[in-house]
Design a protein around this nucleic acid. Structure first.
Lengths: 334, 334
DNA sequence: TTGTAAGCGTTATCAC
DNA sequence: GTGATAACGCTTACAA
């Protein structure tokens, strides 16, 4: 590929002038500009981003560490949103492969050596040393669902409190009174806020809170299945249950079916996330929509703002959640 | 972050020597090596990949253009495989954001300006100009499901012929005789080979081929639904149907249910792909396993081989397919 | 075994 | 308006 030197030679000007044309400087005559543009066209020239990065100390690249799988629906939706925002700003997205065999490896070093302009992070707990390093290095970072703030660190999360609240409200309106909650890890932001939303929902409907109606499990089909199994053994089993992910809801439904009951005829199940999978499941899941794609977009937008404007103070964005009613919930029948 | 100069100063040697230590040259005394390593440790130094790229003309980066969504299960599984192979070789994966607003934009230019070492491509048809440019530019490229070969271009695909064949065989063994095929675009490699596998399956079981048992549609739920609708209107509707994706199978099942029939009691449905979704669907799908993750891994492995060894001739890798029997197919009953 | 210096393709400063 | 030239952080002849 032609370099700036060849363009300069072809156009009969200096490299400095070519650079000015490329970067739209005003102090270049339209005559020279034309000559240069013609040469660029002719040589099919494209500036070398690597060389540019070296001098500008910017790479127009956002980094990401994927500690989970692309097949995780939450992640793939998030990425679709993130990608959208990056495309709009012409940033490329770099998936950094962690070199775990090297004991000295750190995320921060990797980011710096790659010269990424910013990072999007999620799926690790907030005490992870890699996060704290990044925060300290003042690398522009947007966290997803991790309430960590720093001079160059912001986060986006969903309105999980309200989401859970809406789930309870929905079940109450359908006549349910024994409403259980299958939670993920209560130590994390997401777990905590959903739990408090659940409690608030009960309270505002003057329903009593029972410890045995709360089960903590992994955010998986298996987790939902195990939790529901336990709930079904209660002397007074719940007639409605809020799960903390769509996968959990699927597991719960499986457990319910296994003992010969039907969803939603005997028990109503509410999912969480509204991943694309909620609509493919049978029955289609009533679920709390987190707007995951929007979360990803917002993360990207804020990150780019932070990168391009050092004065932009790291935001806390809480994306609204709403309830999507489908077929896994129904009227309470005794 | 410290540069190589600061390390050199700290260690009391020249930058050339530091470079030699970093790159494991043998002609450096262990004494100097120690000094340098100590300085590296002390300053928490990490070589700048950007600067290195500039001189080496290599970036340890593989590029990708995503023309579809991360939420597409086929794609996310492919990416999980690709990522695995890149991690093993410490390459990072760059998602290139196509700048469609710029009329001069081309994939090739983007790759070159970013100095990516190679590219993985899929999801576009083989006449796409971007592909041909890349091929001509002799950029190491692995195609997925696109049979395009060049001096630096290879591809990986699944054994779709055998896959479709196995699907027919399975239905025949269950006693089915009226077996339909819901195909994707017959102009593409994948569509063609599956179709020929279907025909071969019929032939080797001495079953007649009927044009009206073949429907062409998009690889979506909607597509499967529409195709199945048409098949159900036939005077002699099929008792078994091979779909060209798991999503199509879901759509077909929906259409079957809609007229009050059940899967697999009345009609057996075979999916294609064996994405993670096949197991979540109800009923769980009998499907042809493409080993998508393996395809992704193989693409990555071959690409890296091509990059690191100019003599490695671009491969054609056909990943074996097999049948996974679950609950959407059953014995034929009149 | 070590160091000097040119060069990778840009941008930016400062003369002209 | 335009052009030399140093600099970005590294690798690599080649000289010492």
């Amino acid at each position: 590929m032609a370099s700036i030197h060849e363009v300069a030679k072809q156009a009969g000007v200096s490299v400095a002038t070519v650079s000015k044309v490329i970067n739209n400087y005003s102090d270049v005559s339209s005559k020279t500009r034309n000559k240069v543009n013609k040469a660029i066209e002719l040589l099919n020239y494209q500036p070398n981003v690597v060389a540019r990065s070296l001098v500008k100390k910017r790479s127009w690249t956002v980094g990401m560490f994927l500690l989970d799988f692309f097949t995780n629906p939450f992640i793939s939706e998030l990425l679709d949103g993130l990608r959208k925002s990056l495309e709009d700003s012409s940033y490329d997205l770099l998936f950094l492969s962690p070199n775990l065999s090297n004991p000295d490896y750190t995320f921060t070093k990797h980011c710096i050596s790659r010269n990424v302009d910013g990072v999007v992070m999620f799926g690790v707990d907030r005490t992870n040393q890699n996060f704290l390093d990044l925060l300290q290095a003042e690398m522009p970072t947007m966290m997803i669902d991790i309430d960590l703030l720093g001079p160059r660190t912001g986060y986006v999360t969903a309105d999980n409190r309200r989401g859970a609240y809406l789930g309870v409200q929905h079940l109450v309106e359908l006549g349910h009174k024994r409403i259980a909650f299958i939670s993920g890890d209560l130590g994390c932001l997401v777990g905590q806020t959903r739990f408090s939303g659940y409690q608030e929902g009960l309270r505002s409907n003057e329903l009593p809170y029972y410890d045995q109606y709360v089960e903590v499990e992994e955010y998986s089909i298996e987790g939902g299945y195990k939790a529901m199994k336990r709930l079904l053994q209660l002397s007074e089993a719940p007639s409605g249950v809020i799960c903390s992910s769509d996968y959990m809801a699927t597991g719960a439904i499986e457990a319910i079916r296994e003992i010969g009951m039907r969803v939603p005829d005997h028990i109503s199940v509410v999912g969480f996330d509204n991943t694309f999978y909620a609509e493919l499941s049978m029955p289609k899941l009533t679920t709390i929509n987190q707007n995951i794609t929007l979360m990803g977009m917002k993360a990207g937008e804020h990150l780019i703002r932070m990168i391009e404007n050092p004065d932009y103070s790291p935001p806390t964005e809480i994306v609204p959640a709403n309830l999507v009613v489908r077929d896994s919930t129904g009227q309470y029948k005794e």
